[in-house]
Design a protein around this nucleic acid. Structure first.
Lengths: 410, 410
DNA sequence: GAGACATATGAAAGGGTATTTATTAAATAT
DNA sequence: ATATTTAATAAATACCCTTTCATATGTCTC
């Protein structure tokens, strides 16, 4: 007895409820007549659906109020989506921090708590920071843990979705844990764990420039490099949840994908934050300039920012370094473009603060390597991308359960 | 007024009709009770649906006949899908041939006509061969052009889907035409034109080893090299219908994607049929052996077959050539695997006859270049893959129109 | 300020679908 | 020949959507 798509008239009601809900969540408060024209349903039907959803707590009546143009005729009752009917939690847990975001059912962030974890040396430390951040965010939002409808978390590394175990997380020592199980001990609701680049792609689709892109590639470019692939409205995870792992591209003849001691792949070693600093230092040796003092503490991602900042000021060495990095990056980006032909490529994480100089350099370098020049942009979501994407994933999960299930009450 | 998914009870009927039809097309003749249990619908509902579909000509009653085990109880009436209710046409048009396939609504091929076009020097010649092949196939199938429900054609090059114009077809001089418009002059039904590698991927999903693969990459490997990407049940075409154009991968440092005088990309020049012959000739120069007499007429794809055949016999030079080609191919395959992480990669077209030696050599070479070893197979569909895929595409289109549309008769 | 107009709401009727339950029909097994 | 088993038919019930008509409640005009 599968819960297939067939069924009686109640299925009809569920479909139409979803339509009404979608129309209402997109726009602000609407009258029943507005809803009728927007959904294509008849007014009586909309009335019934709204009544049902109202009883379920998903809708609320709102006083007309003189909020708009005074129309003639009997004023309509307005109904709005009760975004506060439930909340979801989006988590971004990385090497240095734990970020917990609480959002309502429209995806609006209502609370956020960032916990620094640069001192963490074990997964237990990291989990402790996560718990602190979660407590803080929930308190700020004024809700209890049991009120959370769905949770999603983003983490670096390969994740066994949907099980939620971190299979391979180079860079985080001891982070090979059953993260989902840990989270389920705190939350009494569905928990998902995903690769961070994938989640950032989701966020970009919702908040960023990718709203009308059918195929979107988000490239997480910081210390590590990875890609999230979004096709239609669906994340492309691949057979082993390893899709988009371009950090392990081995472009040089004779190179292999084997990770180094820090767990980084060959492409990450070529264009990651450390490589950017290295390129800057290298160019400064020849040309001098602002980057001459760039010390060996280049592991700090802010070192890369210094290179981009100097390039923006016209420093010769820095400009050369940026071009070197852009050329290398283009060689890894080109295969992605040829294989997927995406509508848009968004570059995020640390390097997203690089500015337009890097972007144009990449465009120049990648142009001759592809058939059609791609749309290429820098993310504007900053450090929140992963957590916002986690909210999106949790939201999508919650929505599948919020609609009243079809079936005869008898 | 969009023809959205909402609607009244008639939509319900359409959904359930589709379920009944699917169940019936998958298995042989079934009784109404069988259909009820398989679809989860009630028997009376199935009765109504079947009656309606029968009136539409899509179903036929079949005499019980002593075809099975004698069951007790009243014998059930059996109903079957009328595959002969309509026919679709799948076309493979390439540089040297025109292949037209006629299939019924289950996708079973009922006629096939291959027209040699090695002497064709213009698009007019090629179209003439196509028309001859089409006439022959339709005559063999015993149907008229006006009886065809849907047509799909596969061609090399970039295709502007869904418009059906060939935008860029290096290798076929003068083939930059509005192929779909040409075909529409012959057929009074929907016509689709697609990239040949994409269609071969569809065929592999239906007939080949990929039936349970969620993500499938078909690699067309002959004189030209291209990939078709199938995700879920959907072709991934990309923003400019340029997805999978891996023939233009520029792997060497300093190389560009620019096509040569024959319109071939850099990766095609490295591993295409001609490169295989070249590698064989090169190795024979050093080692001698069976390939010593390999003349300069290496443009013939059968030259590549000679290399593989010699390698199968243990010829030293040929084995070395195969390994050289496998190493090069692996370098282009690895990015595809890292980006998409497919369940299965199928290698088709000319090289699919290479045998297992090439396959294991590729596996060995690509292993160190990826994170998870891929499933890699040779196609077993031979020359029919593209035409069979075209049938699949035409079928999918036809099916959307065969179901009785919902809506009140009033 | 009273009436006309415009829009929203509500109730009732009509048609379409699906399910459950009961009844009848047609085979085989005892 | 009767019982059993399974299939088809029919009736009853419930749900859903739409159309149509009547009613309510504002604004605008005179």
């Amino acid at each position: 007895m599968e819960a297939s798509a067939h069924g009686g008239p109640p299925l009809m009601r569920q479909i139409n409820s979803a339509h009404v809900l979608a129309a209402l969540r997109g726009a602000g408060p609407l009258s029943l007549s507005d809803l009728a024209t927007r959904t294509g349903l008849s007014r009586p039907t909309v009335g019934q659906v709204v009544e049902q959803l109202h009883a379920g707590g998903l809708l609320a009546w709102v006083e007309p109020g003189q909020d708009g143009l005074p129309r003639s005729g009997r004023p309509a009752r307005l109904v709005r989506f009760r975004a506060e009917a439930a909340h979801v939690v989006g988590i971004d847990i990385g090497r240095h921090k734990a970020l917990v975001t609480v959002a309502d059912l429209t995806g609006t962030v209502v609370a956020e708590h960032r916990e620094d974890a640069s001192g963490a040396s074990s997964s237990a430390d990291l989990l402790a920071a996560l718990r602190t951040a979660a407590r803080g965010a929930l308190a700020q939002a004024g809700i209890r843990r049991t009120d959370v409808a769905s949770v999603a978390a983003g983490t670096p590394g390969l994740v066994d979705w949907p099980r939620g175990a971190v299979m391979l997380a180079p860079g985080l020592p001891g982070w090979k844990i059953e993260l989902a199980r840990e989270l389920r001990r705190s939350f009494r609701c569905p928990v998902q764990v995903e690769n961070d680049a994938n989640l950032a792609a989701l966020a970009e689709r919702r908040h960023g420039l990718a709203r009308d892109a059918r195929t979107l590639v988000f490239i997480y470019w910081g210390e590590r490099v990875g890609a999230g692939v979004l096709i239609g409205d669906q994340l492309h995870r691949g057979a082993a949840n390893a899709a988009g792992e371009i950090g392990f591209l081995a472009l040089e003849e004779g190179a292999t994908a084997a990770p180094d001691h820090f767990g980084r792949g060959p492409f990450e070693r070529m264009v990651g934050a450390e490589a950017i600093v290295e390129a800057g230092r290298d160019a400064a040796k020849r040309h001098g300039g602002l980057l001459a003092g760039l010390g060996p503490d280049g592991l700090d991602p802010r070192g890369a920012e210094a290179v981009f900042a100097a390039a923006a000021q016209g420093d010769l060495a820095a400009v050369e370094a940026v071009h070197t990095i852009a050329r290398r990056f283009a060689r890894g980006l080109a295969p992605v473009l040829l294989v997927l032909d995406p509508d848009l490529v968004v570059i995020g994480a640390g390097v997203s603060r690089a500015g337009s100089a890097l972007l144009t350099a990449i465009r120049d370098s990648v142009g001759p390597l592809t058939l059609v020049p791609p749309r290429l942009e820098l993310s504007r979501l900053g450090d929140d991308a992963v957590a916002l994407g986690a909210v999106e994933l949790a939201l999508a999960e919650a929505e599948t359960r919020l609609l009243p299930a079809p079936g005869y009450p008898a």
